[in-house]
Design a binder for these strands. Sequence first.
DNA 1: AATAATTTGTTGCTTTTGCAACAGAAAAAC
DNA 2: GTTTTTCTGTTGCAAAAGCAACAAATTATT
Lengths: 210, 210
Amino acid sequence: MYLNLDINEFVNNFEHGCTKVQKKIFSKNEIITSYIAKRNQFCILLSGNADLVRYDLNGNRTIVEHFSKYDIFGEMFYNITTNNELLVEARKKSEVLFYSYNDIKQKCKNNCKFHQILSESLPELILGKVMDLNMRIELLTKRSIRDKLLGYFSLVSNRTLSKSFTLPFPLTDLADYLSIDRSAMMRELKLLKEDGFIEKVGNRIILLYK
Amino acid sequence: MYLNLDINEFVNNFEHGCTKVQKKIFSKNEIITSYIAKRNQFCILLSGNADLVRYDLNGNRTIVEHFSKYDIFGEMFYNITTNNELLVEARKKSEVLFYSYNDIKQKCKNNCKFHQILSESLPELILGKVMDLNMRIELLTKRSIRDKLLGYFSLVSNRTLSKSFTLPFPLTDLADYLSIDRSAMMRELKLLKEDGFIEKVGNRIILLYK
DNA sequence: AATAATTTGTTGCTTTTGCAACAGAAAAAC
DNA sequence: GTTTTTCTGTTGCAAAAGCAACAAATTATT
């Protein structure tokens, strides 16, 4: 959650706002957007969940990012190389605001409140994104499945301020997020249980180490 | 290279600039900085090369980022969890400017040109960082050593606008950058040659595919 | 409430990757 | 210009991860 502006006021007043901002609602599994060069779309997820996914030639799916309330995403964060398609898919019913980065950068001519507020908080928003991406890189550079899992768990544990939590997405998706094979991950989860690192009931994890 | 301001003027006038900016010179293998929470350091590499590295408990070294001229780095981009130490090490003689992010964000009281210019271009600087990090994530999520190598090569190829290039760092470092074992990487490089994907003479690579 | 679809959990087998150790080449230091 | 250090290149073996296939459990759909 990056937005430290008053998001409620922001959204409540949306109806009277700038016509250059669009709000759309997506149902589960709908494609919210596909990244296309030069369009420079910038989006805010107002509710629901969504994933930025990439499919490679071997049929592997990678969840590049997982978004929840008030996360930001869009082409403006990518140097798009046509090599591989990037899609944002809704995991459940989701509301999304669509901007053009150009309107934020060079002050939208309508001079509306929305673009103004956003323009002011943009550096902080992007900085939050950088921090998230750096955490993601830390996870991905771990050398073993075990270390990736433990790294991810401690991340969720820090975020929820608890040693016991439900995973924010299915295990199938977790494997695609950590960029590992699902069955190998399941095997490692079993070993983590046997070795006394975690308890696990379905998608609920309890960390047993300090 | 993120800075699209006039870096020469910027640096030439440095001597008469704000006392809150420090310029330091490091020789090969010196530690430029170690990331420490709350200090919020922000750095610009003016010349030379440097790596952001992390050492894990198994003795693995990971090159988290590789910096060259005008790249930016510093604690301000990290949510520092004391888990693992992050060091920036000079690969060759390097000049570095040190700022405090707070001086940039809340306008340095000296009201100096340096902080002003930087403050204005900060969103774009950070956005460039985000793009770099996203490319890095794309590399790290590749499932095999072969795909990581090919992905990295095409990245360098795009940057140098040529199918033939010298790697910007030793192969030992490339392995630590891709987060893979060096000998396994060497084996895969041999296979890539045998399979006709690349030619390789020492650290010079020629891509043979379109 | 019944059926369909998705997700979890498991396993045998194969392939890939990592580890360790060392020789030769190249680069840096003296 | 010689010595020392770092880097490249190679290999056999061990360990880890991927693949394929399927049953059981759970969750959606109608």
